[in-house]
Simulated scan of single mutants.
Amino acid sequence: MQIRALMYFDELVRTNSMRQAAENLNVAPTAVSRQIENLEDYFGTPLVERSARGVTLTAAGELLAARAGRTLRELEHVQQLIEDLKGLERGRVTIFANGAIVASLLTPALAEFSKTYPSIRFEVMITSARQAVEAVNSARADMALTLFAPQMTEAKVIARSEITYEVIASSRHALAGRKEVTLRELARHALALPETSFGFRQAFDTAAERQGLTFEPAFTVSALEMLKELVLSDMAATLLPRLSVRRELEAGTLTAIPLASESTIRTHAELSIAPDRQLSFAAAKLSGFIEEFMRSNASR
């Protein structure tokens, strides 16, 4: 079985169209069809069913599709490891990160790292924390940098820094200017909070329960950007680490009020990799650099 056939099949699965797959691969549609037929001959069973609406995977096709992409990514990874053996300080690193941590941690870390390794290229995908960890587990990413990550046992956390949460409100909010605020005081104000699958929300609910408090957020959302927009619009206050709203704090559009000591809430930013996958030179160097960067910027 040729690698080319797997590549063509993987593209067909991704596009669900012989014509689109051929266009993306810069070949004729007959070339894609021929490679699919080669795979079907190899496995001795149909992999796709063709119709005017496109292609549909058979049960065998679904089985192959679930593994073909990972196989191709692993081959690319082996190629990178071979390049490393040649002593070439270059390569490509794929990082999945969730939005809360990109601007304040990942972006400055990559900018500084690139000064030392200008030949290394980066592919950064912004997703949810869960999707970032899943990308590591499926070999679509070399590493995941996450905040609010749900507990998932498959990935290996190689660096963790403690993140302290503060009340984030607009500069016009009634709480603006306070030196600190308790959770009990916060309960009197409209709140926007992440939904309950987020690590922070679970920590918040635990802290509230410990003090005998029940919160009914005015807004429950799954995107950091929406939290910030609600706060900027004076619709609610929220709780976030300073690093996630650093620009808005510097611009004076938002303010951060520390929680009183008995109400303190902390979670962790985490850098994760697959436990059974050797990192390439580029990925290993970057992971070590980010780990040090996280330590030096902890709790900022």
Rank of each mutant, 00 (worst) to 15 (best):
R184P: 08
P29L: 06
M152Q: 13
R188N: 13
G199C: 08
E166A: 09
K285W: 00
L175R: 01
R50E: 10
L213Q: 04
R92D: 04
P29E: 04
D142H: 12
R50G: 08
N38M: 09
Q278H: 05
R14Q: 10
L186Y: 01
R4H: 09
V48Y: 02
I158A: 05
R121M: 11
S114E: 12
K86S: 13
Q151L: 15
N16C: 13
S17M: 03
Y8F: 14
G54S: 06
N26Q: 13
I265L: 03
A149W: 06
A31R: 12
H173N: 09
Y42E: 13
E134W: 05
R300D: 13
T253Y: 05
S299D: 14
L239P: 10
T153Q: 13
R50V: 11
E180Y: 00
R246E: 11
A52S: 13
V181M: 02
A149N: 05
D84E: 04
A159P: 01
L85F: 03
V93K: 01
I265H: 01
A60V: 02
E225M: 08
K228C: 05
I273R: 09
R130T: 11
L230C: 07
N24E: 12
R14C: 05
L81N: 05
G252V: 03
H189P: 07
E270K: 09
L213K: 07
P118S: 07
L39F: 01
S104P: 03
F148D: 14
N137F: 04
E89G: 07
